[in-house]
Simulated assay, not measured.
Amino acid sequence: MSAAVPLTPEAGPPWLRPLLDNVDRVRDAYRRRVPPEVLATISAANTQAAIAGARRDAAVLVLFSGPHDAPAEAGLPTHATLLVTVRASTLRHHAGQAAFPGGAADPEDDGPVGTALREAWEETGIDTGRLQPLATLDRMFIPPSGFHVVPVLAYAPEPGPVEVIDEAETALVSHVPVRAFTNPENRLMVYRSANTRRSAGPAFLLNQMLVWGFTGQVISAMLDVAGWARPWDDEKVVELHDAMAMVPTDNGGPKQL
């Protein structure tokens, strides 16, 4: 992974073009869903981390999969997926949280694309030779970890098998259907108990996970920018622990799709 990996946006399928052609709009779409007081807190934390020299570079892999030949006018293919992991409950930061595979940069990574691919391989065992890095989103700061994170968009028509490599770090790895995220019944707003309802951000309640926080915000922004989002009830606001309690623990829970 030491050699620089080029970005090849032209390798993306037609159905991904609405997102790839508008990647520069994702950051603004992300910020529109972040309450002003939360943005102010993030900005202050970013400034403080910069003064203390505590900011760290990181990258995550936003991997879409699905048929390459599906026509753009047909919208999202039925089998389009997005790779998501659930972090182990014993981790110090973001324990039990759904996330894109990724992590801190190593000096030999030669940029965020290398970091995202290396971390994805380490966490999920995915064959990175199958993947086409397409584009990068703007760097975003995430307190309290102090990471400056670059989401790396990638595509694979057939990504191959994935699995949990280290149970101390990852509890679940899944290719989640993108239509699970576009289903209005799976959408809600979530806030931490230490904050107020006004600080709530987009979340997705799926069969095996609650996707919220940074990952939920990025997915929500991508759906908006690509025109894939369907009208949903953003007045459905749930406290985080209550929302986590809604995640089914058996096959009798709410449907994902």
Rank of each mutant, 00 (worst) to 15 (best):
A180H: 11
P157S: 15
V247A: 11
D166T: 09
L205P: 06
D57T: 10
R32H: 12
L19E: 03
A29V: 00
H79E: 15
D127N: 11
R139T: 15
A156L: 04
T41C: 01
G96E: 01
D166G: 09
R197Q: 15
I219R: 05
A243S: 12
P14F: 00
A40K: 08
Q48P: 00
D233A: 12
P161T: 09
L131P: 04
R55I: 07
G160D: 02
G227F: 01
P184G: 08
V38L: 10
P133M: 13
T196N: 04
G129N: 15
A11R: 14
W15K: 12
M246F: 01
E158T: 14
H148W: 08
R118C: 02
A135F: 04
R92W: 00
T81M: 06
L83T: 04
K236A: 11
E169I: 06
L63Q: 07
F147I: 09
V149T: 15
R187M: 10
V190M: 01
D166M: 07
A74Y: 09
S89I: 06
A45H: 05
D234W: 00
G125T: 03
M222N: 08
N46L: 14
P112V: 01
P67I: 13
R55G: 12
V84H: 13
S145R: 09
P254Q: 11
I126D: 06
A99T: 06
P77R: 05
G129A: 11
V86P: 01
L137F: 12
Q48C: 01
H68M: 08
V26C: 05
Q208T: 13
V218E: 07
M244I: 09
R27D: 14
R192F: 12
L39V: 04
E235I: 03
V5K: 10
D21A: 15
G66N: 02
A95H: 04
S43N: 12
F64R: 04
G216K: 01
V247P: 09
A99K: 11
T182M: 09
E10Y: 00
P6I: 07
R92S: 15
V237R: 01
A154G: 08
P143R: 04
A80P: 06
A154V: 04
S2A: 15
T136P: 01
R198T: 08
V149M: 10
A200W: 02
D138G: 13
R197N: 03
D106G: 13
A180P: 00
A58K: 03
D138H: 05
L82W: 01
P107G: 00
V225F: 06
A98D: 08
D127L: 01
T128S: 11
I51Q: 10
R118E: 09
A171W: 00
L131C: 06
S145L: 13
